[in-house]
């Protein structure tokens, strides 16, 4: 594939003007459009409408304008959930430099690359329910593997997922562990597109490996790093499943202080029968995600290099 020898942008742009009647375009996106409109756009609009309603558990709602949103602003649980989602996102962002360094290391070795890739990717191909079960077990304060390992080093263990002082951080670690494989692939693809000649030239100039990483790899990899960062923020802000499976047990007192935004949405809409309020939470989350994404695209000019 010639991905690495893409034609100059000018040609590409001109090429867009070539071609058949616009109807071909419409015909080819029709299946996608119909599906996305019916299964995503329409359901979304319905939920959006509900955010302006007072919705009884069953039956039609009544319009209440912005009431749900004003209630939201005064709801301490909402702000706490927001904070937790923020913490989780920040932790997952720490995974980006880790993935970048690992991708660069893998790129550098001559043998065994495939083995490492497979091992790092295993969490991605494992059922999320299964992952949560395993980690909950590992984090157990009384007989978990983690505390036992820590005790070997003389470190006092904690009730990682049973204490709201730690739970969201413990879950963040699982999040990094789960997402590393995908990030490595995206970054690995970016690394492959860096022309080897650049390294050869800088080697002749006597640059060491660390220096090359910062002077060549990082700048040229920055579009991939940017993509990974954007994807990470979007998915981290939507995190729900780990809290759901790891903290939601009969007696878990850590859940209260560890809810994320989407968890709160789920709870309001599906446990407490308040879909209108839940919808308002989801809409606010959507706005935050969009804002964060737009902001990142704005900021990318400062640090992302496109050749």
């Amino acid at each position: 594939m010639t991905a690495r020898t893409a034609p100059p942008p000018a040609r590409r742009r001109r090429a867009g003007g070539l071609g058949p009647s616009p109807w071909w375009g419409y015909a080819m996106i029709a299946p996608a459009f119909i599906g996305l409109a019916a299964l995503y756009l329409w359901p979304f609009l319905k939920t959006f409408a509900k955010s302006f309603m007072d919705t009884p558990a069953f039956g039609p709602g009544t319009w209440t304008g912005l009431d749900n949103y004003t209630d939201l602003l005064g709801d301490g649980d909402f702000w706490q959930a927001f904070g937790n989602s923020g913490i989780y996102t920040a932790i997952l962002l720490l995974g980006v430099p880790i993935a970048t360094v690992l991708a660069a290391l893998i790129q550098q070795i001559s043998r065994g690359r495939a083995v490492y890739r497979v091992l790092y990717f295993l969490p991605v191909v494992t059922l999320p329910v299964a992952i949560s079960m395993v980690w909950r077990f590992i984090y157990n304060g009384d007989f978990g593997l983690l505390n036992w390992v820590l005790s070997l080093f003389g470190v006092q263990g904690q009730y990682w997922v049973a204490d709201d002082a730690y739970a969201i951080y413990a879950i963040g670690v699982v999040g990094i562990w789960m997402s590393l494989g995908v990030n490595l692939i995206i970054l690995g693809a970016g690394l492959q597109s860096i022309p080897p000649e650049l390294y050869e030239a800088s080697s002749m100039d006597g640059a060491g490996r660390v220096r090359q990483f910062f002077k060549i790899t990082l700048p040229l990899l920055s579009p991939s790093v940017f993509l990974v960062t954007v994807l990470t923020v979007i998915s981290a802000l939507q995190m729900f499943d780990l809290v759901f499976v790891m903290l939601r047990s009969v007696d878990n007192t850590a859940l209260d202080g560890s809810k994320t935004i989407v968890y709160l949405f789920y709870e309001k809409a599906f446990v407490q029968f308040d879909q209108g309020y839940g919808a308002a939470i989801a809409v606010v989350l959507l706005l935050v995600i969009m804002l964060a994404t737009v902001l990142q695209f704005r900021l990318q000019r400062r640090w992302v290099f496109y050749d």
Binding site: V129, S235, M239, F240, D241
Partner: peptide, 17 residues
């Protein structure tokens, strides 16, 4: 991203039905 969305959905394990 699609990926992570499906994932959350998945673990919701059941939330709904």
């Amino acid at each position: 991203m699609r990926h992570s969305k499906r994932r959350s959905a998945a673990a919701a394990v059941a939330a709904t039905a």
